[in-house]
Simulated assay, not measured.
Amino acid sequence: MDVSEFLSQPLVARVATRGPEVRPVWFLWEDGAFWWLTGSYSRLERLLAEDARVALVVDTCDLAAGAVFSVTCRGEAEVVPLDRARAIRKLTRYLGPEDRWPARFSAPLDDPETSMVRFTPDRPPRLHDRSW
């Protein structure tokens, strides 16, 4: 499995900001960056304005299969305007077709306070295989 194949799965990333604050996010890996939604419902935009440095980890652990994979990255994140098409691609990964989404997931796309975070790692991500 390569890093793009691994990151194309609907996995949860954990993002750490200064503080430290750690939060789970649904993400999209696209154009060499991780993308996720943020808005007035989250303190993340304020935290990134104070210090844009973040660390991110995406990992899996299947004990029965003995498969452990991880990607860990560091760098700076920035809040950018909502890219609705990108946001829909991200949410579709996790929720399936848009017409089946619960309202709480589609409503933020119509909220003018909703933005996206673009996190471009300092180095290209590498997939670490610690399987046995």
Rank of each mutant, 00 (worst) to 15 (best):
V22D: 03
A103Y: 07
V58A: 00
T17V: 00
L48E: 02
G96N: 03
R74F: 11
R18W: 15
A77E: 05
E45V: 12
A85W: 04
W35D: 01
Y94Q: 03
S4K: 14
A33F: 02
D59F: 02
D99S: 12
F27V: 04
C61K: 13
A85E: 10
D2I: 06
P81F: 06
T60I: 04
A87Y: 15
A103I: 09
E76A: 15
V57G: 01
R14Q: 13
V22E: 04
K90N: 13
R23Y: 12
H128Y: 10
R130N: 15
V68W: 12
T72E: 12
Y94P: 00
S131W: 07
R84W: 04
F34G: 06
A33H: 07
L82S: 10
G66E: 07
F69Y: 15
V71C: 01
H128N: 13
V54G: 00
W35G: 00
R46E: 14
P108G: 05
A52Y: 05
W29C: 00
P124H: 02
T114N: 08
V54R: 00
R93N: 08
L11K: 11
L11S: 14
A52M: 07
E50Y: 09
A103L: 13
T72F: 11
D62V: 06
R126T: 15
D2A: 07
L56W: 03
L47D: 08
L127D: 08
D99W: 09
R84L: 04
R46Y: 11
D62F: 05
A67G: 12
E21V: 15
L28A: 13
V71K: 00
D129A: 05
R18G: 13
A77W: 03
A107G: 08
V57K: 02
E50A: 14
L82H: 11
R14L: 05
A33D: 01
D111I: 08
F27Q: 01
F105S: 06
S106Q: 12
R93C: 03
D31I: 05
L11T: 10
S8F: 09
R89Q: 04
K90M: 15
Y94K: 06
F105L: 06
E21W: 13
G39L: 00
A52I: 06
A55W: 06
S115L: 11
C73P: 01
V15W: 00
E78S: 09
W36V: 08
R74Q: 14
A64S: 14
T92V: 04
A87N: 15
C61Q: 14
G96P: 00
Y41P: 09
A55T: 13
A52H: 09
L56P: 03
D51L: 08
G39F: 01
A85T: 10
L37V: 07
W29Q: 00
